[in-house]
Design a binder for these strands. Structure first.
Lengths: 105, 105
DNA sequence: CAGTTATATAACCGAGGAGGTATTTTCGAG
DNA sequence: CTCGAAAATACCTCCTCGGTTATATAACTG
């Protein structure tokens, strides 16, 4: 699954992710918070779903949307190539990470 | 300066960043590598420049473009809100970071 | 100064995407 | 089995944006 840069480029979709970071929500709740039409919200949710950024749990007519962070983890991995440019302690940090992996005490 | 999600959403612009990660380049070099027209490349470079992702150093008629990682650092900070969702050792890692900041031995 | 190289800007075109309204589907309640 | 609630889909419009070609600007070269 490619990193969904284009999906994240849309401000309303990022607002949805922020809201879902707190807790799962129904389409109706998101619609109210975003100030969009219900179909507009559903369309964004479909895009997010197809990008793997959210998943749905059905409950009668209601759909609970919740976060799926995997694609964001991939974005994080992409950023890693650039991280040494601003993180002074990056190399030292990496060594610590490896250490933790070998000895997760 | 807001995080330039929309600027990063464009694949050719990400390729430019990847190329500039290796070393600064001239517009002509980038044009050749991307397989775009020269004006097309210049247009992407303008967008990257206005987003603060690259800066130019003039040298006679030539312009050397180089990376400016600050906006990517801001993206990294945004991602941090979500990082605990996939990084199991995230909290432990954070403690290590703080430790390093206090005692950069 | 004339010519050439390197890059930027202008003007245009076509595709895609975000938004809306109208409609359909799904499911529970009575 | 009808009604109402919740969400999805269809369809349309408008605007943005990436790409192109043509042209302008700037600076070195002889």
């Amino acid at each position: 699954m490619p990193i969904p840069f284009d999906v994240l480029a849309e401000p309303q979709r990022r607002r949805i992710l922020d809201l879902l970071l707190e807790r799962p929500r129904l389409v109706g709740e998101l619609t109210a918070e975003l100030g969009l039409s219900q179909p507009g919200t559903s369309k964004h949710l479909r895009v997010l779903r197809e990008a793997g950024l959210v998943r749905v749990r059905q409950d009668a007519q209601r759909r609970w949307y919740e976060l799926r962070p995997e694609p964001l983890a991939e974005l994080d991995a992409w950023l890693a190539h650039y991280r040494h440019l601003w993180s002074a302690s990056f190399d030292r940090l990496e060594r610590h990470l490896d250490q933790l992996k070998d000895d997760p005490s």
